[in-house]
Design a protein around this nucleic acid. Sequence first.
DNA 1: GCCAACGTTGGC
DNA 2: GCCAACGTTGGC
Length: 171
Amino acid sequence: MERERRYWLFKSEPGCFSLEDLKNTPLMTEKWDGVRNYQARNLLRDEIQPGDYGFFYHSNIPEPAIVGIVEVVREGYPDYTARDPEGEHFDPKCSFDKPIWYMVDVRYVRHLERLVTLDEIKKQPALAGMELVKRSRLSVQPVRTDEWEYLLHLGGISLRERICPQTSLEM
DNA sequence: GCCAACGTTGGC
DNA sequence: GCCAACGTTGGC
Protein backbone atom coordinates (compact mmCIF):
# COMPACT_ATOMS: atom_id res chain seq x y z
CA MET A 1 0.00 0.00 0.00
CA GLU A 2 1.51 3.24 -1.09
CA ARG A 3 1.50 6.01 1.38
CA GLU A 4 -0.03 9.32 0.58
CA ARG A 5 2.15 11.83 -1.17
CA ARG A 6 3.84 14.28 1.13
CA TYR A 7 5.19 17.72 0.46
CA TRP A 8 8.52 19.34 1.26
CA LEU A 9 10.49 22.47 0.71
CA PHE A 10 14.02 22.22 -0.61
CA LYS A 11 16.34 25.17 -0.32
CA SER A 12 19.14 26.05 -2.61
CA GLU A 13 21.33 29.04 -3.21
CA PRO A 14 20.74 29.80 -6.87
CA GLY A 15 24.33 30.94 -7.23
CA CYS A 16 25.26 27.41 -6.30
CA PHE A 17 22.42 25.44 -7.85
CA SER A 18 19.21 26.96 -9.20
CA LEU A 19 15.96 25.47 -10.43
CA GLU A 20 17.05 26.44 -13.91
CA ASP A 21 20.21 24.39 -13.38
CA LEU A 22 18.08 21.42 -12.36
CA LYS A 23 15.93 21.85 -15.45
CA ASN A 24 19.05 21.85 -17.61
CA THR A 25 20.56 18.81 -15.96
CA PRO A 26 20.60 15.70 -18.14
CA LEU A 27 17.52 13.65 -17.25
CA MET A 28 16.46 16.67 -15.19
CA THR A 29 17.57 14.82 -12.08
CA GLU A 30 19.99 15.93 -9.42
CA LYS A 31 21.21 14.86 -6.05
CA TRP A 32 20.16 16.88 -3.11
CA ASP A 33 23.48 16.66 -1.31
CA GLY A 34 25.64 18.42 1.21
CA VAL A 35 23.06 18.69 4.00
CA ARG A 36 24.89 18.54 7.34
CA ASN A 37 22.17 18.95 9.90
CA TYR A 38 20.68 16.08 11.87
CA GLN A 39 17.08 17.19 11.72
CA ALA A 40 17.29 17.55 7.95
CA ARG A 41 19.20 14.28 7.76
CA ASN A 42 16.39 12.46 9.53
CA LEU A 43 13.90 13.75 6.99
CA LEU A 44 16.11 12.79 4.07
CA ARG A 45 16.83 9.34 5.47
CA ASP A 46 13.49 8.39 6.96
CA GLU A 47 10.61 10.48 5.70
CA ILE A 48 11.06 11.70 2.16
CA GLN A 49 9.90 9.17 -0.44
CA PRO A 50 9.89 8.90 -4.22
CA GLY A 51 6.70 10.45 -5.57
CA ASP A 52 6.70 13.19 -2.98
CA TYR A 53 6.69 16.74 -4.26
CA GLY A 54 8.70 19.67 -3.04
CA PHE A 55 8.85 23.38 -3.54
CA PHE A 56 12.19 24.63 -4.77
CA TYR A 57 13.26 27.66 -2.77
CA HIS A 58 16.01 30.08 -3.65
CA SER A 59 17.78 31.30 -0.53
CA ASN A 60 20.52 33.76 0.26
CA ILE A 61 19.59 36.25 -2.43
CA PRO A 62 18.09 39.75 -2.20
CA GLU A 63 14.59 38.39 -2.65
CA PRO A 64 14.36 34.79 -1.43
CA ALA A 65 11.42 32.96 -2.97
CA ILE A 66 9.76 29.71 -3.93
CA VAL A 67 10.33 29.36 -7.64
CA GLY A 68 9.06 25.97 -8.66
CA ILE A 69 8.25 22.36 -8.03
CA VAL A 70 10.39 19.24 -7.95
CA GLU A 71 9.59 15.58 -7.50
CA VAL A 72 11.54 13.17 -5.35
CA VAL A 73 12.74 10.30 -7.54
CA ARG A 74 15.04 8.43 -5.19
CA GLU A 75 14.71 7.85 -1.48
CA GLY A 76 17.42 8.74 0.99
CA TYR A 77 20.80 7.12 0.48
CA PRO A 78 24.24 7.85 1.95
CA ASP A 79 25.70 11.17 0.86
CA TYR A 80 29.03 10.11 -0.55
CA THR A 81 30.25 13.69 -0.81
CA ALA A 82 30.84 13.39 2.94
CA ARG A 83 33.57 10.84 2.20
CA ASP A 84 35.41 12.91 -0.37
CA PRO A 85 38.35 14.62 1.38
CA GLU A 86 38.74 16.95 -1.58
CA GLY A 87 35.13 18.02 -1.56
CA GLU A 88 33.47 20.94 0.15
CA HIS A 89 31.15 18.72 2.13
CA PHE A 90 33.75 16.37 3.55
CA ASP A 91 33.07 15.05 7.04
CA PRO A 92 35.94 13.00 8.49
CA LYS A 93 33.57 11.24 10.89
CA CYS A 94 31.82 9.47 8.02
CA SER A 95 32.77 6.10 6.68
CA PHE A 96 31.29 3.64 4.23
CA ASP A 97 29.78 1.69 7.13
CA LYS A 98 28.65 4.77 9.02
CA PRO A 99 27.38 7.27 6.47
CA ILE A 100 25.81 9.76 8.94
CA TRP A 101 24.58 12.04 6.13
CA TYR A 102 21.97 11.28 3.49
CA MET A 103 20.64 12.73 0.27
CA VAL A 104 17.74 12.20 -2.10
CA ASP A 105 17.44 12.74 -5.84
CA VAL A 106 14.95 15.24 -7.21
CA ARG A 107 13.55 15.89 -10.65
CA TYR A 108 12.46 19.14 -12.23
CA VAL A 109 8.71 19.39 -12.58
CA ARG A 110 7.93 23.02 -13.35
CA HIS A 111 8.38 26.63 -12.42
CA LEU A 112 5.56 28.46 -10.72
CA GLU A 113 3.64 30.87 -12.92
CA ARG A 114 4.96 33.56 -10.63
CA LEU A 115 7.40 33.18 -7.81
CA VAL A 116 6.27 33.51 -4.23
CA THR A 117 8.66 35.61 -2.19
CA LEU A 118 9.49 35.05 1.44
CA ASP A 119 8.12 38.51 2.08
CA GLU A 120 4.78 37.47 0.62
CA ILE A 121 4.77 34.22 2.54
CA LYS A 122 5.32 36.05 5.81
CA LYS A 123 2.26 38.19 5.18
CA GLN A 124 -0.08 35.23 4.91
CA PRO A 125 -1.70 34.18 8.18
CA ALA A 126 -2.41 30.79 6.62
CA LEU A 127 1.32 30.20 6.29
CA ALA A 128 2.39 31.43 9.71
CA GLY A 129 3.02 27.87 10.86
CA MET A 130 5.61 27.14 8.21
CA GLU A 131 9.13 26.26 9.29
CA LEU A 132 10.30 28.81 6.79
CA VAL A 133 8.61 31.52 8.81
CA LYS A 134 9.21 30.18 12.29
CA ARG A 135 12.73 28.88 12.06
CA SER A 136 14.17 29.46 8.71
CA ARG A 137 17.46 27.65 8.86
CA LEU A 138 16.42 24.08 8.02
CA SER A 139 17.45 23.34 4.47
CA VAL A 140 14.71 20.81 3.87
CA GLN A 141 11.43 21.02 5.70
CA PRO A 142 7.93 19.54 5.65
CA VAL A 143 5.04 21.44 4.07
CA ARG A 144 1.48 20.63 5.07
CA THR A 145 -1.05 19.85 2.37
CA ASP A 146 -3.08 22.96 3.07
CA GLU A 147 0.10 25.06 2.92
CA TRP A 148 1.08 23.35 -0.31
CA GLU A 149 -2.21 24.19 -1.94
CA TYR A 150 -2.22 27.72 -0.64
CA LEU A 151 1.27 28.27 -2.04
CA LEU A 152 0.32 26.76 -5.40
CA HIS A 153 -2.50 29.26 -5.52
CA LEU A 154 -0.14 32.14 -4.70
CA GLY A 155 2.19 30.79 -7.38
CA GLY A 156 -0.48 31.13 -10.00
CA ILE A 157 -1.29 27.46 -10.33
CA SER A 158 -4.98 26.76 -10.13
CA LEU A 159 -5.98 24.06 -7.70
CA ARG A 160 -7.97 22.46 -10.48
CA GLU A 161 -4.84 21.92 -12.49
CA ARG A 162 -2.93 18.78 -11.92
CA ILE A 163 0.80 18.51 -12.03
CA CYS A 164 1.63 15.64 -14.33
CA PRO A 165 4.81 13.89 -13.27
CA GLN A 166 5.43 12.34 -16.68
CA THR A 167 5.40 15.44 -18.82
CA SER A 168 6.21 18.22 -16.39
CA LEU A 169 3.06 19.93 -17.63
CA GLU A 170 -0.11 20.60 -15.84
CA MET A 171 -3.14 18.91 -17.37
C1' DG B 1 29.10 42.17 4.82
C1' DC B 2 26.71 42.17 9.24
C1' DC B 3 24.66 39.72 12.66
C1' DA B 4 20.82 36.99 14.94
C1' DA B 5 19.49 32.47 15.56
C1' DC B 6 20.64 28.20 16.16
C1' DG B 7 23.47 23.88 16.00
C1' DT B 8 27.73 21.54 17.31
C1' DT B 9 31.89 20.79 19.91
C1' DG B 10 34.62 20.00 23.69
C1' DG B 11 36.51 21.23 28.33
C1' DC B 12 35.34 20.56 32.80
C1' DG C 1 25.60 16.83 31.34
C1' DC C 2 26.40 21.84 31.47
C1' DC C 3 27.66 25.64 28.98
C1' DA C 4 30.98 28.69 26.63
C1' DA C 5 33.08 29.04 22.37
C1' DC C 6 32.76 28.52 17.87
C1' DG C 7 30.72 27.62 13.15
C1' DT C 8 26.96 28.00 9.81
C1' DT C 9 22.83 29.64 7.71
C1' DG C 10 20.43 32.98 5.59
C1' DG C 11 17.67 37.38 5.95
C1' DC C 12 18.57 41.94 5.63
